[in-house]
Amino acid sequence: MRSDTSPPGLRIAAAAGLAFLHLPILLIFVYAFTTEDKSYQWPPPGLTLDWLAVTWNRPDVWAALSLSLEVAAVSTAIALVLGTLCAASVSGSRFFGRETISLLVILPIALPGIITGIALRSAFSLAEIPFSQWTIILGHATFCVVVVYNNAIARFRRVSGSLLEASYDLGADGLQTFRHVILPNIGTALVAGGMLAFALSFDEVIVTTFTAGQQQTLPIWMLEELVRPRQRPVTNVVAMVVVLVTLLPILAAYYLTRDGDQVAGSGK
């Protein structure tokens, strides 16, 4: 039985580890309200809500945010289609090259992002494709496929062979089986995968620096601020908003998939 209590040393080390993971993110929330705008001074000399209003009135932040949302939405849609098709074919049958295909899907995320980024950039320049939000989407969709794939494949396995056979047996052809059996069973996994893909795309910066021209996604905007800080208070507020925006789809994805299969832990 596993009812034994844990050694105190282990408990302290585990708690300290979790604190190490979470405290820095909490700190962001404090800095968003500091009155100090020239340095990263701690403790904050005072607290104010002014920077929320200032940020609200910044057209560059809004432009970056809307581009990020657009890119994330389109990339997620593409990744949903490609990832689902891939998971369906890999889980549904055994064929030659099946392993190669799973490897191909995982590769864009397994290799460092900089490789994906520079490879895409040099390919664009070789093919003389001008940079636009579509080049960003092309890159994002490529590495978002794996997140959808990972979520979908776990559920496809659960829709086992005999469930599909039962549907055929009861008079449903392939298309009806897809609509009445497969789709309802993988639905939540697809929504979860889509949300994680959205969060991944919304947050991506490494590949994006290579595939974006003059366009600024929100992470690119932040990166510029990090390298050359000009408006620290606005950056603080944007950081807080980004944490909140990515938190929601991740929590939602967790609740959608918590019974049974895990959220794609190795998906990022």
């Binding site: 979790l18 994680l196 947050d203 990090l226 944490v243 990515t246 832990g265």
Partner: peptide, 16 residues
């Protein structure tokens, strides 16, 4: 507790 930091914004973490 492990998943949230994993999926939180990379840049925000660096910024923190």
């Amino acid at each position: 507790g492990v998943m949230l930091p994993l999926w939180s914004s990379y840049l925000v973490k660096v910024y923190a």
